[in-house]
């Protein structure tokens, strides 16, 4: 595959480190995330994958005592600059969590609520339908839009959360283990959905499931704890997914993807 002359990166980190109090959870990450691609973050438990993901939309700030050093550039602008509003950041960089967490409201309201908060002025019915269609849920819920979101199956709830996230039209969707609580069929639906969504959005996914990373992503970042007692994680290799899973450059990546780690 030939590289375009100017590759379009939506997010770029520069020496990004993340602390919880004195504890440096993530250390010195430099990576560039391509627009309209799916980027997977893999690595053993406790290596800082979720912390890194949450740094991309300033979610870590909700944890008291956390702070970031270095930069996260979003379309060239430093997300951590003083004048930047974290709520606006989370509007443009949405997040889907491991456990589906619909609001205890109707399916319709799950979509409409966030859009209304963000000042959406258009046709709400149209937005709800479009969001549910994009999340591949419309056909299953179009006749029960006013039923509770909590009445849906786990896989449907997760797609509802994806619909809710994209209803506010973010540029980037962060996904933290979005299918780990789902059965294989529901997982497959989420994975197919991701391929649809990447036409309009950039997706960054944290997953423990290496097969999932290999199946869905274009690029993969391998994270690992640094040597020593620091318990600090970093990205040790970041490359095209096909390369990571066929001939990784770093011995530690090789050991991890072939199950020799630990």
């Amino acid at each position: 595959m030939s590289q375009a002359a100017s590759v379009d990166y939506v997010i770029e980190t520069k020496d990004l480190s993340i602390f919880y109090g004195d504890f440096k959870a993530v250390s010195g990450v430099n990576m560039r995330i391509r627009r309209n691609r799916i980027t997977a973050i893999i690595g053993p438990s406790g290596c800082g994958k979720t912390t890194l993901l949450r740094a991309f939309n300033r979610m870590n700030e909700l944890v008291p005592g956390s702070r970031a050093e270095g930069q996260v550039l979003f379309d060239g602008q430093d997300l951590y600059a003083n004048e930047v509003d974290p709520v606006e950041v989370r509007h443009r960089i949405g997040m889907v969590f491991q456990k589906a967490n619909p609001f205890p409201k109707s399916i319709y309201e799950n979509i409409a609520w966030g859009a209304r908060i963000h000042g959406y002025q258009g046709d709400m019915d149209e937005l709800v339908e479009r969001s549910l269609r994009q999340a591949a849920l419309w056909d299953e819920v179009k006749d029960i839009l006013h039923a509770s979101g909590l009445a849906l199956s786990g896989g449907q709830q997760q797609r509802l959360c994806i619909a809710r996230t994209i209803a506010v039209q973010p540029e980037v969707v962060l996904m933290d283990e979005p299918a780990s609580a789902l059965d294989p069929i529901a997982t497959l639906k989420i994975e197919e959905l991701m391929q649809e969504l990447k036409r309009n959005y950039t997706i960054i996914i944290v997953t423990h499931n290496m097969q999932q990373a290999a199946r869905v992503s274009d690029n993969t970042a391998m994270m690992m704890l640094l040597n020593g007692d620091s318990r600090s994680g970093t990205v040790i290799e970041f490359d095209q997914t096909k390369r990571i899973f066929t001939r990784p450059s770093d011995k530690r990546t090789e050991d991890y993807v072939t199950g020799r780690f630990g």
């Binding site: 097969q211 290999a214 899973f245 066929t246 001939r247 990784p248 990546t253 090789e254 993807v257």
Partner: peptide, 9 residues
């Protein structure tokens, strides 16, 4: 398995 990296090769 499915195999990865060196195993796959």
């Amino acid at each position: 398995q499915p195999p990865m990296a060196h195993d796959l090769r």
